[in-house]
């Protein structure tokens, strides 16, 4: 019975499933770097900026993606740089920017045509409405990210672990940071439609945290976080069909995180005993 229903879901939901898997992979990959650079909150802040931009685009009758993407890329770069600055309080700045963007988005929505269903869908997302077009966006991006990661994994590790040392070695860390901002912006903007403004950041952060509980090697942490992310998505998608997909994904991720935490505590206790 269960198997039959799975086959049925797969038949009718090819695009949502593929989009979900690909988004899970790229979000997890990005998440490891953001978490390790202590930039977790930036993903959250950017999602609100993305929401504001989407709302403005809808009000102006423009293609949402083309309006949101450049705005969020700029915001991502500004926020990443702020995180490094000693003068500005990075966390306060993020809170400021994200709540302002959310407020702008909401007000613009109100002014133009009331709080439309479109805007509401950007709040909580909806995976079942993912289209072939979403797939056309996310597929090349995920493929590119995986290729970039394989090609630059050692460099990515070096810059993430110790940016100053990498810089002294002559690695162009600025380029890396710009790349990171662009990737973060792209994933957040694409993710908002699927996961919603409020939940996209957890798709980015959770798999990384879970994987970090279990692994000590950077490379493994990276690959396993992608795997965890996909597994969580599939469980949420197939087992909680009746509920909000984004919320189920977050909760399944939370479950995995709790399990991983318990495993890591048991492992540590055993080690101490030996």
């Amino acid at each position: 019975m269960f198997l039959a229903s799975i086959v049925e879901i797969i038949q009718y939901m090819k695009e949502p499933i593929l989009v979900g898997i690909l988004l899970s992979i790229s979000a997890a990959m990005l998440g490891v770097i953001l978490v390790l650079k202590r930039y977790s909150m930036i993903g959250d802040g950017l999602s609100h900026v993305g929401f504001g931009a989407f709302a403005v685009a809808l009000a102006l009758n423009q293609e949402p993606l083309f309006v949101a993407l450049p705005i969020v890329i700029v915001a991502a770069y500004v926020l990443l740089r702020m995180g490094e600055s000693k003068k500005l309080k990075g966390d306060a700045a993020i809170a400021l920017i994200s709540s302002s963007a959310l407020a702008i988005g909401y007000l613009v929505g109100n002014l133009s045509n009331g709080f439309s269903a479109d805007i509401a869908s950007y709040m909580f997302g909806s995976i079942t409405t993912a289209t072939t077009q979403d797939l056309y966006y996310i597929l090349p991006i995920t493929a590119l990210l995986i290729i970039l990661f394989i090609a630059f994994q050692n460099r990515i590790f070096a810059v993430t672990f110790d940016e100053n040392f990498a810089k002294a070695m002559g690695i162009r860390t600025k380029l890396y940071n710009i790349g990171l901002s662009i990737v973060t912006a792209v994933i957040v903007v694409l993710g908002i439609r699927i996961m919603g403004t409020l939940l996209i950041s957890s798709l980015i952060i959770f798999p990384a945290l879970t994987s970090m509980r279990l692994f000590r090697r950077f490379k493994w942490t990276m690959w396993i976080s992608m795997l965890i992310s996909v597994v969580c998505f599939l469980i949420a998608f197939f087992c909680f069909t009746k509920y909000s997909s984004a919320a189920s994904i977050v909760l399944v991720n939370l479950g995995f995180y709790i399990i991983a935490t318990i495993v890591s505590i048991i492992k540590r206790k055993r080690k101490i005993k030996n």
Partner: peptide, 15 residues
């Protein structure tokens, strides 16, 4: 931070 000693020392060879 998932970083083994080996990974860190090796990263010195990047250049």
């Amino acid at each position: 931070f998932p970083a083994t000693v080996n990974e860190i020392v090796m990263s010195g060879c990047l250049k």
